[in-house]
């Protein structure tokens, strides 16, 4: 009986359990316009990757707890000293010193606004977001960078005030656990699984 592949870290090593790949039959590709001659074969494959978040794991864990973490360069000798980075950067891009982790949830609630956006009607394979997808970039006061994310409720407009929402019920532990809604959205209007 097949079982989804699961992984734990134990004694600093990955421990694998379950099925990480499935074998499927290759099928011939034939030319319908040329006597059904053989052109090639299909090569089906189903694999599960194992991926470490490394020093960013705390960021993704915190989303499931309703917190938006960022990082800040605190190296007094660095030109970027005091810069807050969102996306979360483990190291300062200028001095490469390890950044301090800061909770910017409140700053996001009070100052986030849409810098730009795009409503996209198409997606690639394995997409799990509903279409059209409302991609947004969010800017914050006193943050050096402009976070890429998606708008969960409403239609985006440049300059629109938004606030973060978090998938705290059945989190995916991916960036999809963070989304945004117009700042005046009431809690009861949030889609299932999300909370302020």
């Amino acid at each position: 009986m097949s079982q989804y592949g699961q992984v734990q870290v134990k004694n600093n090593r990955y421990k694998f359990r379950g099925d990480f790949h499935r074998l499927e039959q290759h099928m011939p590709i034939r030319d319908a316009d040329n006597g059904w001659k053989l052109v090639g074969v299909t090569k089906p494959r189903d694999m599960t990757y194992v991926h470490s978040y490394g020093g960013e794991a705390v960021f993704f864990e915190s989303l499931s707890q309703g917190k938006l973490l960022a990082t800040k360069c605190e190296n007094p000798d660095c030109e970027a000293n005091g810069s807050v980075f969102q996306p979360f950067r483990i190291y300062c891009p200028d001095c490469l010193s390890k950044c301090a982790v800061v909770d910017m949830t409140e700053r996001a609630e009070k100052t986030a606004q849409i810098h730009t956006y795009m409503v996209c009607t198409r997606s690639g394979a394995f997409n799990v977001l509903d279409k059209p997808i409302r991609f947004i970039n969010v800017e914050f006061e006193n943050v050096s960078t402009i976070l890429f994310s998606y708008l969960l409720v409403g239609e985006p407009v440049i300059g629109m005030r938004v606030r973060p929402v978090f998938k705290v019920f059945n989190p995916t532990y991916t960036i999809l656990d963070l989304s945004w809604v117009p700042a005046d959205t009431p809690a009861e209007s949030l889609p299932e699984g999300f909370a302020f």
Partner: peptide, 23 residues
């Protein structure tokens, strides 16, 4: 981790910039 889970479509990541230029 930060982009491709959202839509799995590169056009979207590029197009936010296009929208800004457009406006």
């Amino acid at each position: 981790d930060w982009e491709s889970p959202m839509g799995q479509i590169y056009t979207g990541y590029y197009a936010v910039m296009a929208q800004k230029y457009w406006q």
